[in-house]
Design a protein around this nucleic acid. Structure first.
Length: 260
DNA sequence: CGACAAGCCTGGTAGC
DNA sequence: TGCTACCAGGCTTGTC
């Protein structure tokens, strides 16, 4: 699940439960989740340190330890965090941070598609992975956005999910953004008009800030409509389900008819 | 049992 | 021809 708004919730969760507690021991319960470290080296990097802040960039969560050192977490499709003080680790816990004086933070991942690692230079870490600007970065302008999409042969849906163009959007939210913008997911990015780009940019900001239809348009969100037989919340037309660059895409063939 | 699932990465190649 | 950007496939395991 974790896309930008979900990772933002995990960031808040980390800050609410796990800050300023010395890490006594790090337990890696499945080595496959580690990205660039052995269990020993990760444990050595974390031992005695305290999480001081959670920082999010796109779908990455950095647990800042001071001096730019960070625990890096990526959640894949099925990752999460769970803080617990008794009763043992939750199901699918892959890495545990055991704090001095009790309490543990578990990184969970059902399918082991995420990653846990360590860096002493988060900016470099992101650059190495070609991660673009965070979709909610105040410094990201409409001009930047339009420039990044110009000339792209790929569909707009695929471009929105491309983390090197804008970081944080996955399958669910790309569908929502395009639904709100009334743009067909298969339309080529380079063929979008200025008005459509404006609409997509504004909706991207609104939706990622105010996720899950919690805002004003609650009745007109695609959210929760991902099942066969679902209808457009605006006009009642049965939603179309197509595959766009390997991902299942829901859209309204009437509201988003401009097209591929 | 096979198909599928909200993540990313890789390899081969279409297209400029 | 060469380089980029794009897509399909793979990873993994639980669910329908």
């Amino acid at each position: 699940m974790p896309e930008l708004p979900d990772v933002e919730n995990l960031r808040k969760y980390l800050e609410a439960t796990a800050l300023h507690k010395p890490i006594e021991r790090t337990v890696v319960r499945d080595n496959r989740i580690l990205e660039n470290a052995s269990p020993q080296s990760l444990g050595r990097h974390l031992k005695g340190k305290e999480l001081q802040e959670g920082k999010r960039h796109g779908k990455y969560l950095f647990g800042a330890l001071g001096n730019d050192e960070c625990l890096v977490m990526h959640f894949g499709m099925t990752g999460g965090l769970m803080y617990y003080e008794s009763g043992g680790p939750p199901e699918y816990a892959r890495v545990l941070l055991n704090f001095e004086g009790g309490g543990s933070l578990a990184y969970t991942s059902k399918r082991i598609l995420g990653k846990v690692g360590f860096t002493d230079d988060p900016d470099q870490y992101l650059e190495d992975r070609d991660v673009g600007p965070d979709a909610l970065d105040d410094g990201l302008t409409m001009e930047d956005f339009a420039r990044a999409l110009s000339g792209r042969r790929a569909s707009i849906k695929s471009a929105l999910m491309n983390q090197s163009i804008v970081a944080g959007i996955g399958n669910i939210y790309s569908d929502e953004i395009l639904f709100q913008s009334r743009v067909h997911p298969g339309k080529k990015a380079r063929e979008l008009g200025r008005d459509e780009l404006d609409e997509i940019f504004d909706n991207m900001r609104d939706i990622l800030r105010e996720p899950s239809g919690s805002g004003v348009r609650k009745e007109e969100c695609l959210h929760g409509q991902r099942n066969s037989g679902a209808e457009c919340p605006r006009c009642g037309t049965p939603l179309d389900i197509i595959n766009v660059s390997g991902r299942t895409s829901y859209f309204c063939p009437r509201c988003q008819e401009n097209g591929a």
